[in-house]
Each structure stands twice: as C-alpha cells, then as structure tokens.
Amino acid sequence: MIKIGNQQMLRDINKSTLLHTIFHHGPISRIDLSRKTKLSPTTVSILMEEIIREGIVREIGTTGSGVGRKMTLLNIDSQGGYIVGVDLASSPAHCVLLNLNGELVATQGLKPIIGEEQLRSGLPESITAFIDKQNIPLDLIKRIGISIPGRLDDIQSTILASTYLKVRNFPLQSCLEEALSIPALLINDLDAAGFAERFSGAAKGDHTTIFIMIDYGTGAGLVLNDQIYHGSRGTAGRIQAFDPFCTPTLSTKLKAEYPEAFDGMTAEETIRSFIDLALMGTEPFREQADRIITDMADYCGKALQLLNPQKMILGGWITDNGLFFDKLVTAIQKRENSLVATTPVVASHWKKYGAAMGAATFGLHEIFKRKTVQ
C-alpha cells in the first residue's frame, strides 16, 4: 500500500512539473519538456497523453523545417478550464473570470454580501449566476478564489475575523465547496491585490515587494523572497498610521471642515476635488495635501529602508491623479535616502480589479505550481 501511495505521489509531482513547465515555457515540444524537467522521454510521453485527455493541454502544431523530423508543440488550452475570482472587500463585491492562460474573460459587480447568511447562501448563488451568464459549464470551473477583508486561519480556510463582513470564525471554504463542488481558496484582500501585481501586473517577476493600499481601508501586503509574509500572529501589513487617509475618513473630515466646497459630493468625488484644488495651489487645500504627502512619504521611506524590496506598489486613491502621485513618489524616494539606488515606486496595474484578479490568479497558481514532497 505504501509503495502504491509513493508511486501515485511521484506521478502527481511529475505531472505538476510538466504543467508548470508548459505554463511558463509553452509552446514546447515533448523533447524540450524532457530536457527542461529532467524526466525521461517515456515518462513525458505517458503523462502528457493523460494531461491532454484531461483537456488542460493541447497540441497546437509542429516545429522544424526541411527533411528532418518535425516536433509536435504543446501549449495550455486556454478554454480547457476557467478560474473565478471574487473580491468581497470592494463596494460592491466584484467578480472576475480568467481562462487557463490568465486572460480576463469577464467581470461583473455583485450585490452586497455581508454576514453569515449571505456568505453561506448568497455568495454561492451569485457565483453560479455569474458563471451561467458566461455560458460556461460548471465542470470547467477549476478553482474559485475569494479575497477576504479580514484575518484568516493558518490554513486559509476560515475567516477568523472580518469587521467589514461582520463574521467571526466562519468556515467559508468548506461552505463554498459543499455548495458548488469546486475547490475554493481564500486569501486576504491585500495579499490578493499584491499577488495580482506579481503575477501579471506592475511587479511581475519580482520576488520581494511591498504593496500598500489606501482606499476604503488601508494596509500592506508583504512578499519576501516569493513568500507572502503574514507575521507571527497573521496581522502583518496593518498600517494604523494611514487610517486618517482612507477614503471614508478623509472625505468625512473634509466635508465637515469645508461643507461649502464639497457639498453633495460622494466620498470619491470629495477626494478628487480636494486633490484638484490642492494641485491648483488653492489654500488651505494645498497645505493639507502637502502634509498628507509628507506623512505618507515618511512611513513609506522608512519601510523601504527596513525591507529593501525590489519594488513598492501603491494602490487606491493616491494613484488616481498623476501629478499628486508623482509628488508622492518623489517624496518617498527622497526619504528612503538610499546609499545605493532608489527603489522603484509604481502605481498598481490592476487598480480596482486587483483583489479579484489576485484571488483568481492565486487559483491559477495552485493549478500550475510545481508540487513537492511534503
């Protein structure tokens, strides 16, 4: 029995190695797969036939010219499966659909999903309706990734606490898998947004990054040597110093102090108008905006000194106005005061779709990651 188990484990590891290699290096021939993976041509041939039958990979033609033997090329079948990503942190909730190449197929807002009852029944219903609208069979959905505004347990299956969702100790992963019969993955919303930037956004290819979001909430997602860093108690990334700058808090403060300037505006409109006035040199808005830049830059500059990442990615309202963002970046890099080279500070690529894209690409990563012996 142990021998059979070991053989199956080795088979699974070899299949994951082949899928990982095709995903990152396809189109590729069986011969080149054997060379890159160090697996024998016979093993590659046998496992590839199984993978092709599963519909994840397809043959797309041949390579080579002249009288020599032509080699059949293999690539991921983009329509062989799909991944759903849901961002429960945005208002309203947001849903995206990716194909197996990580390309965005569809996106849609969802009705508010707050509380245990909505998470238990409303969320599966909303996901099912979204999939049905795309005319995709449910069995082609390979993973569902959920971005959570709150703390998760060590195995990322239970929401330990979420003020926004109004739940504690809620086993969302098992609820979704029981309702939909599809593997579900949970990920913190900031980690998700940061993962999207690393996978296909502003930090693609980087292994050590800081992602900071200032929107309806604030916080950071930290990646150190390709590993998401959660901290000893799972609370790494909290930035209490930025709480006064989150959208609802800052807009409420501005409306209270200058009702005549921002009367009738939404929270987002208030902040956009405030920044416009500040950049035109209108007082006291210019002075307030300069103080905000100084406070943010001081914190970010110290974070860069401490962690020395490859890149800092910023998201939220602070990136909406190019002139304001440029001033902030200049101030951050000045306070970093690097003795070697300044760290690139860039705006997020995925913006409001970041957390949903991250949840989906996290699911894609799970499909194509290389398995190892546990």
Rank of each mutant, 00 (worst) to 15 (best):
I182E: 04
P92A: 15
L152S: 01
F325S: 06
G231A: 04
V345E: 00
V86Q: 06
I13A: 04
T209K: 01
I313F: 03
S121K: 15
L123I: 11
Q374I: 13
G5I: 14
R272M: 12
F325G: 05
V340Q: 02
R35K: 13
G264K: 12
P284N: 10
M9W: 07
L277C: 01
N169R: 14
Y229Q: 06
E287H: 15
I239F: 06
A106L: 09
R272K: 15
H20R: 05
L97T: 06
T63Y: 03
D290G: 01
I113M: 11
P112F: 05
D298R: 15
T294Y: 14
V67M: 14
Q173I: 14
G205Q: 03
F368E: 03
G316F: 04
H24T: 14
I2Y: 10
T343Q: 00
Q227H: 12
G231E: 03
K334V: 00
S91D: 13
M357Y: 02
G237N: 06
R233A: 06
A179F: 04
D276S: 11
Y299M: 15
L172I: 11
N225K: 13
R30V: 02
S174M: 13
T128Y: 11
E117L: 11
G219M: 11
K255A: 10
A256H: 09
R370F: 10
